[in-house]
Simulated assay, not measured.
Amino acid sequence: MDYKIINKEAFAIVGKSIRTSTVEGQNHRNIAQFWIDSNQNGFADELAQVSGDLGLIGVCMDFDNEQEQLTYAIGAEKTTNNVPSGWDEVKIPASTWAVFPVHGAMPDAMPSVWQRIFSEWFPATGYEHSGGPEMEVYLSDSDPYSADYYSEIWIPIKK
């Protein structure tokens, strides 16, 4: 499985978030709908205007295994102190990240790479999840529904 290891200092993202269940893949359906809604209502366009080098970012965080829930944020690197009303600010800690390329149309391409990371990559490499937020990074402003769309999954790791 293709990947690279990078270190990144702490940073903040701004955006909006939802709380979703992980039971029976509900999170995949809710997150896909959150992106559809954000694209249709203009929120993603607003974010794109203030995004940093990472473009638009989806962040999985605040995992609660007991309640089988997580929070998912759609955001962009914070590049200004003027955060619009109703937007959240999320701190992403400094981390060592395993970065995995994702090729293909959204939303289908992303879940298959997530599954392979946890079923194949972690067991084969000796790395462990370090417990921080996980990120989906959408670097390109091209059509996310095209077969050649490129994005990345970032997972905080430790040896």
Score class of each variant (00 low, 15 high):
Met1Ile: 09
Asp2Thr: 11
Ile6Met: 10
Ile6Thr: 09
Asn7Val: 10
Asn7Phe: 10
Asn7Ala: 07
Lys8Tyr: 01
Lys8Ile: 05
Glu9Pro: 03
Glu9Trp: 01
Ile13Trp: 12
Ile13Asp: 07
Ile13Lys: 03
Val14Glu: 11
Val14Ile: 15
Gly15Ser: 06
Gly15Tyr: 06
Lys16Gln: 13
Lys16Met: 07
Arg19Ser: 13
Arg19Ala: 12
Ser21Tyr: 05
Val23Ser: 06
Glu24Arg: 03
Glu24Ser: 08
Gly25Ser: 04
Gln26Thr: 07
Gln26Ile: 02
His28Ile: 13
Asn30Cys: 09
Ile31Met: 01
Ile31Pro: 00
Ala32His: 08
Gln33Glu: 13
Trp35Asp: 02
Ile36Leu: 07
Ile36Asn: 08
Asp37Thr: 13
Ser38Lys: 02
Asn39Ser: 04
Asn41Asp: 14
Gly42Arg: 04
Ala44Phe: 04
Val50Ile: 14
Val50His: 11
Asp53Ser: 12
Asp53His: 04
Gly58Arg: 02
Val59Met: 05
Asp62Ser: 15
Phe63Gln: 14
Asp64Gly: 12
Asn65Ser: 14
Glu66Asp: 14
Glu68Ser: 13
Thr71Val: 15
Tyr72Arg: 04
Ala73Trp: 11
Ala76Val: 11
Ala76Glu: 09
Glu77Met: 14
Lys78Thr: 03
Lys78Ile: 03
Lys78Trp: 08
Asn81Tyr: 04
Asn82Ile: 09
Asn82Val: 10
Val83Gly: 13
Pro84Lys: 11
Gly86Leu: 02
Trp87Asn: 05
Glu89Pro: 00
Glu89Cys: 11
Val90Arg: 06
Ile92Asn: 03
Ile92Cys: 01
Ile92Lys: 00
Pro93Cys: 08
Ser95Phe: 01
Trp97Ile: 05
Phe100Val: 15
Val102Thr: 08
His103Ala: 15
Ala105Arg: 08
Pro107Arg: 08
Pro107Ile: 12
Pro107Ala: 13
Ala109Val: 05
Met110Glu: 07
Ser112Asn: 09
Gln115Thr: 06
Arg116Lys: 15
Phe118Gln: 03
Phe118Arg: 02
Ser119Thr: 15
Phe122Gln: 02
Ala124Tyr: 10
Thr125Ser: 15
Thr125Ala: 00
Ser130Tyr: 04
Ser130Phe: 04
Ser130Asn: 12
Gly132Asp: 06
Gly132His: 10
Pro133Glu: 08
Glu134Ala: 04
Glu136Cys: 01
Val137Ile: 15
Tyr138Leu: 08
Leu139Thr: 12
Leu139Phe: 11
Asp141Ile: 09
Asp141Pro: 06
Asp143Gly: 07
Asp143Tyr: 07
Pro144Ser: 12
Asp148His: 14
Tyr149Pro: 00
Tyr149Asp: 01
Tyr150Thr: 15
Tyr150Cys: 11
Ile155Val: 15
Ile157Val: 13
Lys159Glu: 09
